[in-house]
């Protein structure tokens, strides 16, 4: 019951597309996502059928009992979905949430990593 209410409340909040950087480095891909006000327990990362969906709920609340003079941001729901390349090793995906930024690390599968080929003399 309380879960239903919570979900209902979550739907009421404005939904944002979080600002995202996707960077390729030697070991794999990093997805950096700005999610201010989202604690670890409010973040969900779902991997399904080659797509990764990230959802976060910001629990930012303005100071209680104070009169707001000026507001440029508020609480919100962040949601974004990305298609995953076959080059990503799905079992080794790692996620770190620090200071309101999610760092999703998608390592490259061994099969697509660059390698040296030794030449055999005949």
């Amino acid at each position: 019951m309380s879960k239903d209410i919570k979900q209902h409340e979550a739907q009421e909040l404005p939904a944002f597309i979080p600002a995202t950087d996707i960077v390729e480095q030697e070991d794999g891909f990093h997805i950096y996502m700005d999610m201010p006000g989202v604690p670890k327990e409010n973040l969900s990362i779902d991997l399904k059928e080659g797509e990764v969906t990230i959802e976060g709920l910001s629990n930012y609340a303005p100071p209680a009992g104070a009169q707001a003079h000026h507001a440029e941001f508020g609480a919100g729901r962040f949601a974004r979905t990305f298609a995953l390349s076959d080059a990503v090793d799905r079992d080794k995906i790692k996620a770190v949430l620090k200071d309101g930024v999610l760092n999703l690390f998608l390592p490259k599968a061994e099969a697509v990593k660059p390698r040296k080929i030794s030449i055999e003399t005949a």
Binding site: D34, M35, P36, G37, Y60, P62, P63, G65, A66, Q67, A68, H69, H70, A71, E72, F73, G74, D99, G100, V101
Partner: peptide, 16 residues
């Protein structure tokens, strides 16, 4: 975000 009550000013900055 800026807010104020009887005793304090509150400044919240969004900078992840």
């Amino acid at each position: 975000n800026l807010a104020e009550d009887h005793d304090n000013y509150y400044v919240d900055l969004d900078m992840p």
